[in-house]
C-alpha cells in the first residue's frame, strides 16, 4: 500500500497528463477490439445480433462457435481470402515502393538550390492538401470510361480508351496510380526534412575523399536518411495496407472481389448484403495479426542491421 502511495505521489503528474489519452483509447479502441475479437469467435450476423426496432428490443441470439470462422476463412472455404490477401500485398508493396522512390527523387531535387523551388514545392504538395475522398471522386470523373478526360486525351492521340474503373486489370492500375498520386507528397516532405538534417560537412568530407555523386548518395544520403526512412516506410506500409477511402470510393460500389483489399472487403462483409459481423471481425483480426507480425519482423530486421553496422 505504502509503495502504491509513494508511486502515486511521484508519478501522478505524468499519469494525469496521459490519462485522457489512455481513457479515450481504452474505451474506444481496446474495448471495441476485445469485443471485435469476441465477435470473430461467434456466428453474429444481421439476424442473430441484438437490435432495437421501434419500441421493441430483440436480444442477441448468436452463439460462441470457437475458431470456426478462422478455419472457414483460412481453409479457403470462404473462397476469397487468399485472392484478396495476394492483391493486398501486391497493392501495398507497389504503392509503398512507388511512394518512396518518387518521394525520394522529388525530395532530392527540391533539396537543390534552383529557381522556382518554392513554387514547385507548393504545387507538389497540393495532392496532400486535398482530402482523399474529394480526390477519389475527382479521379472517378477523370477516369470515366465514356467521357473522362484521360480517355479523351488517349483518343485524340489516336489510342483507344480503356475502361479504367470497370475492367478488373485496369481497375488495379487505376487504384495504384491514384494512391501514388495521393501519397507521394507525404513521403516527399518527410524525406526532404530528413535530407535537410544531414550535416553538410559529411558531403564535403566525402567530396574531399573523391567520392562520386553516386557514392555520396549511397554512402552519405541513404545512411543519413535511415532513421526517417525506417519510420515512414513502416507507417506507410501500415497505412497503405489499411487504405480505405481510395478503393472504397473509386471502385468499391460496383466491384466484385477483384480489386478489394482486405479492409474494404471486410467492410463490405459487415455492411453490404446480409450483414456478416462475425466474418468481418474475423477478417479484421487477421489483418491486425498480419500487420503486427510485419511490424515486429521489420523492427527486428532494422535492429539487426543497426547492430551489424555498428560492429563493422
Amino acid at each position: 500500500m505504502a509503495t502504491v502511495t509513494r508511486r502515486l505521489g511521484r508519478h501522478w503528474y505524468a499519469w494525469s497528463m496521459v490519462a485522457p489519452v489512455v481513457i479515450v483509447l481504452t474505451v474506444l479502441v481496446l474495448v471495441p477490439l476485445g469485443r471485435g475479437l469476441y465477435l470473430s469467435l461467434t456466428d453474429a450476423n444481421e439476424s442473430t445480433i441484438g437490435r432495437t426496432i421501434g419500441p421493441n428490443h430483440i436480444p442477441s441470439t448468436y452463439e460462441f462457435v470457437g475458431l470456426d470462422n478462422y478455419w472457414h476463412v483460412l481453409s479457403g472455404a470462404e473462397g476469397h481470402f487468399y485472392q484478396v490477401l495476394t492483391w493486398t500485398v501486391v497493392w501495398t508493396i507497389a504503392c509503398v515502393v512507388l511512394h518512396y522512390v518518387l518521394g525520394l527523387g522529388l525530395a532530392l531535387m527540391l533539396n537543390q538550390r534552383a529557381r522556382f523551388r518554392a513554387g514547385y514545392r507548393i504545387m507538389l504538395i497540393l495532392p496532400w492538401a486535398v482530402p482523399a475522398f474529394v480526390s477519389a471522386f475527382a479521379w472517378r470523373l477523370l477516369l470515366n470510361g465514356d467521357r473522362g478526360i484521360v480517355n479523351q486525351a488517349l483518343a485524340s492521340a489516336g489510342l483507344s480508351g480503356v475502361q479504367w474503373l470497370a475492367d478488373p486489370l485496369w481497375q488495379k492500375v487505376s487504384v495504384i496510380a491514384v494512391n501514388v498520386w495521393l501519397g507521394v507528397p507525404f513521403m516527399m516532405v518527410a524525406l526532404l526534412g530528413g535530407l535537410q538534417s544531414i550535416p553538410a560537412e559529411q558531403y564535403e568530407a566525402a567530396e574531399m575523399d573523391g567520392a562520386s555523386a553516386w557514392q555520396r548518395f549511397t554512402y552519405v544520403t541513404l545512411p543519413g536518411l535511415r532513421p526517417i526512412s525506417s519510420t515512414v516506410v513502416l507507417l506507410g506500409s501500415i497505412w497503405t495496407f489499411n487504405q480505405f477511402p481510395v478503393i472504397f470510393l473509386l471502385v468499391g460500389g460496383d466491384a466484385g472481389a477483384d480489386s478489394q483489399i482486405l479492409v474494404t472487403y471486410a467492410y463490405r462483409l459487415a455492411f453490404a448484403g446480409v450483414r456478416d459481423y462475425s466474418g468481418a471481425a474475423t477478417y479484421g483480426a487477421l489483418i491486425l495479426l498480419l500487420l503486427l507480425v510485419f511490424a515486429v519482423v521489420y523492427r527486428r530486421r532494422l535492429a539487426e542491421q543497426d547492430s551489424s553496422l555498428r560492429s563493422r
Binding site: V29, G34, L37, A280, Y283, G284, A285, I287, L291
Partner: peptide
C-alpha cells in the same frame, strides 16, 4: 483496421 473496430 476499421473493419474490426467499427461494429463494436
Amino acid at each position: 483496421p476499421v473493419a474490426i473496430l467499427i461494429v463494436p
